[in-house]
Structures are given as C-alpha cells and as structure tokens.
C-alpha cells in the first residue's frame, strides 16, 4: 500500500483549510482555535495543529490531505507533516502583504519537498486583490528557481472543480517526473566517438 500524502501549505488565511474541506470525502479533522490576530487575517479561527482530509481510492488506498497551520510559530508542525508528503499545494492569498515574497518564502521553507516531489501554486482571493498576476509570480520564481517550471493557477479554494484541477496537476507532475530516464547512447554513437 503506497502512501499518498499531499500537503497544503501557505500563509495564514490563504485558504488551506477551505481547500481541504472542498476536496475531502470524509469529515475533515480540524484543529481551529479562536484567532487573536484579526489584523493579519480577518477570520474567526485559525489552524493550530493540522487539517486532515481523505480521498478514498479503494479498500487499500487513499490520498491523504494534510493542511499546515499557516503561522510560522507552528513550524514544528511543518517539520512533522512534510516528512511523509509526496507533494505540496502552496496557496498564497493575493491580498497578503507582499504575496510573491510569501510564495518564495514558503517554497524555500519546503525546498526538499520541491526537490523530491512536486509543487503547484494556487493564488487565492484574486476577487479581492486582482494583482499581482500569474506572470508576475512566474517571473519572480524564475529568478529564485530558474531550473523549474512550477504550475501557477489562480484559484478560489471554495470551488471544488478548481481545487481538483490543482490537485490533478500536482499528481500529474509528480508522476511524469518518474517517467523519464537518462538516455543510453546507441551503439553507432559510441563507435563514432
């Protein structure tokens, strides 16, 4: 039985809990606490340990969806949760302070996951803050990580179909990476050299 663990990361208020609620087939295990930082994210509660949801594949297998607490003071949970993860959905809300900076920060924080698995980025709350654009994010990431092409989508985590597109893109990315091998030179080429 393979472990399919997908991590939802990103800053406080990006929509991680909302996204897992939309994707999960089970009642999501939530660890919300009353939010005392209304100036950072104007919402009643914030995740303080994890979110947990599932998509059941069959009797044997499920895709496990874990959400991190967005606030850095819970980074010990990040360390615990990222160990088993195969890939990460990074959500960044466009109305955050310096949203592109936040995206780069979280990519760096989860760099090993970025290296071993896959990453997709969802820019949320674009109805509230239309800019920066996908192109702006892509340009900044190309500077920070020139070797990788990361899918960047605008998403509304409250829309199930959009979250599914994001999730399927991540899975496609992780899987196709394993489909390539180093080319073995043909005999004629070796002779020619």
């Amino acid at each position: 039985m393979a472990e399919h663990v997908i991590l939802f990361t990103g800053p406080m208020g990006a929509g991680k809990t909302t996204a897992i609620e939309k994707l999960s087939e089970i009642d999501v295990v939530r660890t919300e606490a009353a939010n005392t930082e209304r100036q950072v994210a104007d919402k009643a509660t914030t995740t303080v340990a994890l979110d947990y949801g599932e998509i059941v594949l069959d009797d044997q297998d499920k895709v496990r969806l874990y959400g991190i607490p967005g606030q850095r003071r819970f980074d010990f949970m990040w360390t615990i949760l990222k160990e088993r993860a195969k890939g990460m959905v990074l959500l960044v809300h466009n109305d955050a302070d310096d949203p592109i900076g936040r995206a780069v920060e979280y990519l760096d924080e989860f760099a090993d996951l970025y290296a071993k698995g896959g990453v997709v980025i969802g820019i949320t709350r674009i109805d509230i803050a239309p800019g920066p654009s996908v192109t702006d994010y892509a340009a900044a990431l190309a500077v920070a990580h020139p070797d990788k092409i990361v899918p960047i989508y605008t998403v509304d985590p409250r829309q199930r179909d959009q979250m599914r597109t994001l999730l399927m893109t991540l899975v496609a990315n992780i899987e196709t990476r394993d489909m390539f091998v180093e080319r073995v030179p043909q005999r004629e080429e070796l002779v020619a050299e």
Binding site: V134, A138, I149, V150, P151, I152, Y153, T154, V155, Q162, T165, L166, M168, T169, A172, N173, E175, T176, R177, M179, F180
Partner: peptide, 23 residues
C-alpha cells in the same frame, strides 16, 4: 510556462500532456 488551467477549458489529458512537456 504553465498555462493557467483554472481559467482555460481543459480535460485531464491536457493536464497530463502539459506535465509531460514540463518534464
């Protein structure tokens, strides 16, 4: 560069092909 698929009509085959082309 990845197309912003949430804004474009797409099928899962397009996502899979795009992922392959990205690799």
């Amino acid at each position: 560069r990845w197309p912003n698929f949430t804004e474009l009509p797409h099928t899962m085959d397009y996502i899979r092909m795009t992922a392959l082309l990205g690799a």
